[in-house]
């Protein structure tokens, strides 16, 4: 069997190599999206039997937006906040590992990834313990008068944002590290030889060169964060619920499939639009590799 691995010819080989994986993605990613789209335009109700019928019910979309504006806004607000915080918090560490890590680089990277081998839900439950009303964080914040006596952290939007930030941190830190690590040190030295201060050299040379990492990190953090419902469920309260909570409960609790499907599509459409705008600004090849 000639695999033809070494010629860039236009034979059938690449298609044969791609076929199994692409068929899987087509059958279990693209086709389901089609089903979801179909479902989002159905109408009917559980009370009138279990039948939903396809009726081009665009009203599912408008009523999803009208009824859950707060949840949609909160999803993007919390995800945006968490992304920015994660970027600011992890950039210096990624920089430190890339430029000062020396032969400890791999070990330090391991430290960044390690916490995420404890199951997501267990990690989040640990934050529940840490942020609880009699926990250390609340006592500390009360002592320095950042929250009033009897104030809470758990069951607030702050706790949800804190949880999201923590849970998606490696998605930010790793791409940042990769792009910083690839920077040619001699470029920074050249800037300093040309009398740029360290700070100016960072702003004019290092930071611009690390932008691909910033872009990848923000996307990898923002996208899962916007659809998350676990943090809002375990660390928040109904007033800090995100659209993910609504989709989840409508699908799996209330079995209101058309409304939940419409919401999923709105969520995905907004995210895709944001990604495309981003891609337009920085170039697609960087995004898709």
């Amino acid at each position: 069997m000639g695999l033809g691995l070494f010629h860039r010819h236009r034979g059938a080989t690449p298609y044969l190599l791609l076929a199994p994986g692409m068929l899987w993605l087509a059958a279990f990613f693209l086709v389901p999206l089609g089903f979801l789209a179909y479902q989002s335009l159905e109408s009917g109700s559980i009370i009138a039997g279990f039948g939903y019928a396809f009726t081009w019910a665009w009203s599912n979309y408008s009523s999803a937006v009208r009824g859950y504006t707060g949840e949609f806004e909160r999803s993007f607000e919390y995800a945006g906040l968490a992304t920015v915080i994660a970027l600011v918090v992890s950039y210096p560490v990624a920089y430190w590992i890339a430029f000062r890590g020396g032969r400890w680089k791999n070990l330090l990277l391991l430290f960044i990834v390690a916490p995420f081998f404890v199951t997501y839900l267990i990690r989040t439950l640990a934050w529940q313990t840490i942020l609880s009303d009699h926990g250390l964080v609340v006592r500390l914040l009360t002592d320095i008068h950042l929250i009033s006596p009897g104030g809470r952290v758990l069951a607030t939007g702050t706790a949800v944002v804190a949880g999201i930030t923590y849970n998606f941190l490696p998605f930010m830190a790793l791409p940042l590290y990769v792009s910083l690590e690839q920077i040619d040190q001699t470029l920074i030295e050249a800037a300093e030889d040309l009398y740029a201060s360290k700070w100016r050299a960072f702003l004019r040379v290092t930071f611009p060169l690390s932008l691909p990492g910033v872009v990848a990190g923000t996307l990898l953090t923002f996208i899962p964060a916007a659809g998350d419902f676990i943090n809002a469920q375990l660390l928040g309260s109904p007033t800090s619920h995100m659209i993910g909570n609504v989709i989840q409960s409508k699908f799996l609790g209330l079995q209101d499939y058309p409304a939940a499907a419409a919401m999923s599509f709105i969520l995905m459409a907004i995210i895709l639009a944001l990604v495309l705008v981003y891609a337009r600004v920085v170039g697609t090849e960087k995004l898709t590799g």
Binding site: L36, Q248, S264, M268
Partner: peptide
């Protein structure tokens, strides 16, 4: 680039 909840929801349907 698709949130997990959308992957899950579409597979459920």
């Amino acid at each position: 680039s698709t949130p997990e909840i959308v992957l899950g929801a579409s597979l459920l349907t």
